[in-house]
Amino acid sequence: MSPWTRGGPAAGAGVLVSLLIAGHGLLPNWRGLGNVVDSALPWFGLAVPLLVLAALARRSWAALAGALAVTVTWAAAFGPAFLRDPVTGPRDLRVVHQNVDYFNPGLPRTAAALRDTGADVLVVAELRDDPVLRDGTVDPGFARLIDPVLPYRFPDNPGVAVWSRYPFHGRPQPVPGVVRSRHAVLRTPWGDVSLYAVHITSFRPEPSVIARRNAEMAALARAVAADPAPRVIVAGDLNTAATDRALSPLAATVTPVAEKAGTGLQLTWPAALPLVRLDHVLTRGFTAVGSRVLPPTGGDHRAILADLRLTPPASPSP
């Protein structure tokens, strides 16, 4: 049998994987299947070593061609994430976010690590409420570590808590259609910044859960698109992979910082061995100076850090 006729199934599998990587957005989102495929997309590259092994076992050039097709398609889709030129220059704002996990047994350690990041804005998801007070305030032990360095914080904790170096203008309000969310305006030395702190419904491969997650993402995208503010920050656990089509409407009006100034895929969950980026910082009116995922300090997500510079450069108010 010719080397080009051996290994036909392996070659076909390579072509199929390549088509899914390149055209996953065309896959019908029946019962959330498209969202699931989108989220797993970076890991389709694991088909390459499997196809190479099949090619060697079958001594098949066809199977090897299938592996090459996946390699080229994957590199075109994800290679630029590893090849970005570094952005230089000072930052104006540092934004840090982490889902700290309701059941985090090492919460003080996590709080200390977040405090030491030098954040100007800290967004925290799944920070448990004080079981004694039960009035919406954040865990007092966590707050005692953060309050001295970031003196302003949201007055309640609807599944997402926020600390800031700068005061809020008015009382933070929920984002319509997003249960665990707050929108506030920060009064910075460079002018007002519209901040959306969010914790979107968890993503699970169940049609009803995916539909609820998608509805919240659509509501967030509408709110941000309708916001006339020239400077906007969206930060939080979106429970949406960077490759998920549900992120596209939001990313059309605010830019993911990791896509501009990050290195690599910047995966955040699960913390021990990250497989997907569920946590995001997206902006409008800023230049992304840096973006990185921080080492695990407790909880089931890793923290993300984004350094931002105002665009165009602005001088502090007198």
Rank of each mutant, 00 (worst) to 15 (best):
W43L: 11
T137C: 09
A221V: 05
A288K: 04
G12L: 10
V95L: 12
A111R: 14
R277W: 02
A225D: 08
A125I: 04
A55D: 02
V123K: 03
D92M: 13
G79P: 08
G136K: 13
P167I: 15
L310P: 02
D237Y: 00
V185R: 13
V132A: 12
P312W: 11
I146L: 14
D135T: 10
V36P: 03
A63L: 03
L64I: 07
W43S: 08
S194H: 08
R134Q: 11
P230M: 10
A271Q: 00
V178N: 00
G106I: 06
G23M: 09
S248L: 13
A13L: 15
A143Y: 00
A288D: 06
L93S: 04
D192V: 13
G23W: 14
H24W: 10
R213M: 11
L294A: 08
F103S: 15
D307G: 09
V121G: 04
I210E: 07
A223V: 02
A40D: 03
N35W: 01
L64C: 10
P295F: 05
F168N: 14
Y102H: 15
S208T: 11
E259W: 10
A271E: 01
A271W: 00
D101Q: 03
L127I: 08
E126K: 03
V36S: 05
L53W: 11
A67H: 06
P207M: 13
G8D: 02
D135N: 10
A226L: 12
L265N: 01
K260S: 10
T73Q: 04
V17K: 06
W190A: 01
P131C: 12
P42D: 01
D244K: 05
A288S: 10
Y102F: 12
L150R: 04
G32D: 08
A67C: 08
A261N: 07
L20A: 15
P151N: 12
F82V: 06
P296F: 07
R277H: 06
W163T: 07
L133F: 11
T268N: 08
F82P: 05
I200Y: 00
I200Q: 01
F286S: 02
E216A: 04
P131I: 12
R302E: 00
S164C: 14
H169G: 09
P295V: 04
S18I: 03
P189V: 09
N99C: 02
G14Q: 07
A271M: 03
V160M: 04
D135G: 15
P151V: 06
R284Q: 05
P151G: 12
H199K: 11
R84V: 07
M217D: 01
A65V: 14
G264E: 08
V198R: 02
R115P: 05
A215W: 02
G14L: 08
L310G: 07
P151I: 08
L250G: 04
D92L: 11
L19Q: 11
V87L: 13
S202V: 14
L305N: 00
V224H: 05
L150V: 12
R153E: 07
N104I: 03
A271D: 00
A11F: 13
P9K: 07
R84K: 12
A226Y: 05
V149K: 09
N239T: 06
L133M: 12
A246S: 14
L310V: 15
